[in-house]
């Protein structure tokens, strides 16, 4: 474990916590009297969260952590896997099933057909992988899928008029975690002999590059102290 990977995991954990906080805010809002301005904004405008991206991430974790009960790495590793699995599936459940949270989900805007991402990633994993075994192919599939899983969310943000802070933070943290992982891979390449994982590195690089324009607008909105807005 190195500082870059730990920072990356913590950033990833933060992104999940921000999303759970946002869902909690929406839930708690419904109980209050209506005139509360925050509630009004939350319930009237869409939450800006893409269910499609959340479903893709649940699939990413399900296919990446198949070895959670067979290969024990460390307590930290197992706990983090359980957190990511539990949170991603519960977020999907909240947006799909929870009587209040589902109201803030705008399915008319979140129209990205994520099936078009799943199939090519699966085919690519069958062709390009380190070992042609069930677990290895699914693990490789999870890397390719994670690289593109943010696309429905980024497209939804372009369509969302006013991106609220928690959603912007969520996407930023999600992009930042993989950028930190790239530093981790560079560090491990120079410190551990034979540490070469091209598939992981290229997928992670593509994933981070997909956030490039978001990062640009995110930092610009911070610098100019204006609302985050992505050009359509």
């Amino acid at each position: 474990m190195n500082i870059f990977r730990l920072a990356g995991d913590m950033t990833h954990l933060m992104s999940v916590l921000v999303l759970l906080l946002k869902i909690h805010t929406i839930k708690s809002c419904a109980g209050k009297s209506y005139p509360c301005s925050l509630c009004f904004i939350l319930l009237e405008s869409s939450s800006g969260i893409s269910l499609k991206t959340q479903e893709l991430y649940a699939l990413v974790f399900a296919t990446r952590y198949l070895d959670i009960f067979t290969d024990f790495i460390s307590v930290y590793n197992t706990i983090m896997k359980l957190i990511f699995l539990g949170s991603s599936f519960s977020i999907v459940w909240y947006i799909r099933r929870h009587k209040i949270v589902r109201r803030s989900y705008d399915k008319d805007q979140d129209t990205f057909r994520h099936f078009f991402l799943v199939l090519p990633c699966l085919l690519l994993a069958l062709i390009i992988n380190e070992k042609f075994t069930f677990k290895e192919v699914l693990w490789t599939f999870s890397l390719y899928l994670e690289a593109v899983a943010i696309l429905p969310q980024l497209i939804l943000l372009q369509r969302t008029r006013n991106i609220d802070n928690l959603t912007g933070q969520y996407v930023f943290l999600l992009g930042a975690y993989r950028a930190l992982y790239i530093l981790n891979w560079i560090y491990r390449y120079f410190t551990e002999p034979h540490y070469v994982h091209w598939i992981t590195w290229i997928s992670g690089l593509v994933q981070t590059l997909l956030y490039a324009d978001f990062f640009y607008y995110y930092f610009s909105s911070l610098k100019n102290n204006v609302k985050l807005k992505l050009p359509a």
């Binding site: 995991d9 790495i73 590793n77 896997k81 990511f84 380190e130 693990w139 034979h194």
Partner: peptide, 10 residues
């Protein structure tokens, strides 16, 4: 020798 590279990253 290809060590059975255990996936130690999340």
């Amino acid at each position: 020798s290809a060590t059975t590279d255990v996936k130690d990253e999340l």
